[in-house]
Amino acid sequence: MNHFALTIVGRDRPGIVSQVTKILFNQGCNLADSSCSILGGQFAMILILGHPEFTNLESFGEAFKPLQETDLTVALRVLKPGGQTRSQIEGDICMISVYGSDKPGIVYRVAEVLGEKQVNITDLNTKLVGTEERPVYVMVIEAALPEGVEEEDVNGWLAPIRDDLQIDITVRIIPTVEL
């Protein structure tokens, strides 16, 4: 089985998912992990898929043409063997909520600190909310903390950004429980 990462983006409307998955089904693809969401006015799909024979974009032939004809942008990435499986993520799971009046650099400043401290961001979503006069930026990060790192440590690392950018940041660890 060869694996691919497929991304599809286009103006949101009902029917995109069915249009895309019908093609993939007819081609004999297996869908594995996927994430599809509305971002702004666009619908964005990211799919990891497998196919027993296909090896590259050419293998799909004209299959994606109907998508392009309906103004969807299609990109296919061929994965190296093993590229479809997630590496083991260790460490406590932590949610970081960041929000404040919109200004440049919020995402970068927070991500920079987390990257330096080897915090593995596993999910990140941002949204511009509020009114046109008073735009508010909201970001929610899910991250895996390195061994031994506590909630207070993350709070401490982010405190200078909180003061600098006048934004609110809360950090909370989600305990993992075996039931």
């Binding site: 799971i93 989600i174 305990p175 993992t176 075996e178 039931l179």
Partner: peptide, 16 residues
């Protein structure tokens, strides 16, 4: 409260 739960009947997965 939110916890990341795992279950003996659904091995190897956890969810918030």
């Amino acid at each position: 409260t939110t916890m990341r739960e795992g279950c003996m009947s659904v091995p190897d997965y956890t969810g918030n």
